[in-house]
Design a binder for these strands. Structure first.
Length: 482
RNA sequence: GGCUCCAUGGUCAAGCGGUUAAGACUCAGGCCUCUCACGCCUGCUACUGGGGUUCGAAUCCCCAUGGAGUCACCA
């Protein structure tokens, strides 16, 4: 049995968006599941679009996404070089071979002549003008140093067909395909050509890519046929959309992998979510690790229609990953966010982590959830009023004074002990415990909601600060009631 | 516009000729509870339309409609 070989072939044009990453992921999953090889190839034949640093971004993205290529520019597997610009000589040689075999021909047409072919909508189909040039004529013009391109020679009639692994049978009339340029006048190959040659030379037998190539694939097959090469299997993937009309695009900076990372999404969650966009596992379990994805990935589950990116669901999934984290792990990933908040360097991050883990879906929520610890000041005393618990400002004030007396002499400043003492007090005063806890939490924090209860906040703040705030709040209430 | 595809709730989706048409996210309500979360429970919402085929169609066929892709010396 031949080894399955798939590839991810991005062009270094800047961002790595989610759609690209998903294509990459599927190619990786498919190869790994089959025990095959996943290769990375850089397609930089368009020098005009080349962006500095983009190649590093690709490496970095794959690494943090947990997708490890078996071969690539940085990992020779014997099929290199893996960067198209370093393969320039190869293409021309093969293009000439294809000309010999009748699958392509030289074309000397000028831009002006090409423009004259366009219809009123600006759409032109090349008329095979140069196909009729005699061998001698071609040689004469080549020798004269005329600029030329090499075009694919597509049969004028008939139908080209193939079977796609997800879309099934595809058939395209030959007359609808154009004699595209294979070698540009600068000597570089176009994607159309480089792709076919490289895939063949690198023994790629499963081509996994976006649907935009679905209808041009017959052209590639025609080349494989003309060369006498074995055609690969194809798996085309529907796009990921921003909404019903627009797909996610690099141009508008939608959904970049790195942007999500910066927003506090975990790479595992992003990968997990995008795996589910356009593919669904057999079972009902949606939270899947890379290992599980490799195991469960299945072409059958790939959907043919475009899917809309739903950040709300990815956010939920991210929260699920966070909930499973150990305190240590959480502190590790959350540290940058703590450091960015007002409490940077203060408080015990581990103690906070325990409270935050069930309350945070994405890490960037952290500053907002902890800033109150440093921002204590005048607040609206109306918050002490609580109809359901039957708490009035007067009662709050009275109870706060009582709890202050209890806590004043308390030396064991832990959540557990403080909670017990507050409950005792409630019993002694024969009131509901909430009538103690609620005002206490407010008095200590000054905000309507906090990540944790009154005594948890007290422990976090420490005795000195807690007592200070209690004093402050009592004074605030007294002033309001005066 | 030509060509190639696609079509189940707001979103992701299961379903492959006979189902009460799964599940998840979102949203709403409830329980739990010292706030907020977590957790648990309940609920809302779908087969684009029309024709066939068949005893029977979300599932097969045709047409319409809607959507996507493509038609570059870009990939």
């Amino acid at each position: 049995m031949t080894t399955v070989r798939t590839r991810f072939a991005p062009s270094p044009t800047g961002f790595m968006h989610i759609g690209n990453l998903r294509t990459c992921l599927y190619a990786y999953l498919f190869a790994k599941q089959a025990g095959g090889k996943f290769v990375l190839r850089i397609e930089d034949t368009d020098q005009e679009r080349y962006v500095e640093g983009a190649v590093d971004l690709i490496y970095r993205t794959l690494k943090t996404a947990g997708i490890e290529h078996d071969e690539g520019p940085d990992k020779d597997g014997g099929y290199g070089p893996y960067i198209q610009s370093e393969r320039k000589d190869i293409y021309l040689k093969y293009a000439k071979e294809l000309v010999e075999k009748g699958g392509a021909y030289y074309c000397f047409c000028t831009k002006e002549r090409l423009d004259s072919l366009k219809d009123d909508k600006g759409i032109a189909k090349y008329d095979k003008h140069c196909l009729s040039l005699s061998k001698e004529e071609v040689q004469r013009r080549l020798d004269a140093g005329e600029h030329y391109v090499i075009r694919q020679n597509i049969p004028a009639e008939g139908v080209s067909e193939y079977d796609d692994m997800v879309f099934g049978h595809i058939s395209v009339p030959n007359e609808d395909m154009e004699d595209n340029i294979l070698i540009k006048s600068d000597g570089m190959p176009t994607y159309n050509f480089a792709n076919v040659v490289d895939d063949h030379l690198m023994a790629i037998n499963y081509v996994i890519r976006g649907v935009e190539y679905l209808s041009s694939t017959p052209k590639y097959n025609l080349m494989y046929d003309a060369f006498g090469w074995e055609r690969p299997h194809y798996m085309h993937l529907s796009p990921i959309m921003k909404d019903a009309q627009r797909k996610l695009s690099k141009r508008y900076g939608d959904a970049n992998f790195e942007d999500f990372l910066a927003k506090g999404y975990l790479p595992e969650a992003i990968v997990n979510y995008i795996a589910l966009l356009g593919w669904s596992p057999k079972g009902n379990e949606e939270k899947l690790s890379m290992a599980q994805l490799v195991e469960q990935f299945d072409v059958e589950g790939i959907s043919k229609s475009p899917s809309i990116f739903d950040e709300a669901k990815m956010r939920w999934l991210n929260g699920e990953y966070i909930k499973e984290m150990s305190v240590e792990k959480f502190v590790e990933v959350a540290k940058p966010y703590f450091d960015k908040s007002k409490i940077a360097g203060k408080y015990d991050y581990s103690a906070l982590a325990k409270l935050l883990i069930p309350r945070v879906e994405i890490l960037s929520e952290i500053p907002d959830k902890v800033n109150f610890l440093e921002e204590f000041g005048e607040y609206d005393v109306e918050m002490f009023e609580h109809k359901k618990m039957k708490i009035t400002k007067e009662m709050a004030l009275a109870n706060l004074k009582e709890i202050e007396k209890v806590y004043e002499n308390e030396s064991v400043w832990t959540d557990e002990n403080l909670k017990a003492k507050a409950s005792e007090l409630a019993e002694k005063l024969s009131c509901k415990s909430g009538q103690i806890f609620l005002p206490l939490r407010l008095a200590l924090t000054g905000v309507a909601s906090t990540p944790g209860g009154a005594t948890e906040m007290a422990e976090l703040l420490g005795k000195e600060e807690s007592m200070r705030r209690l004093d402050y709040s009592i004074a605030l209430l007294e002033k309001a009631l005066a």
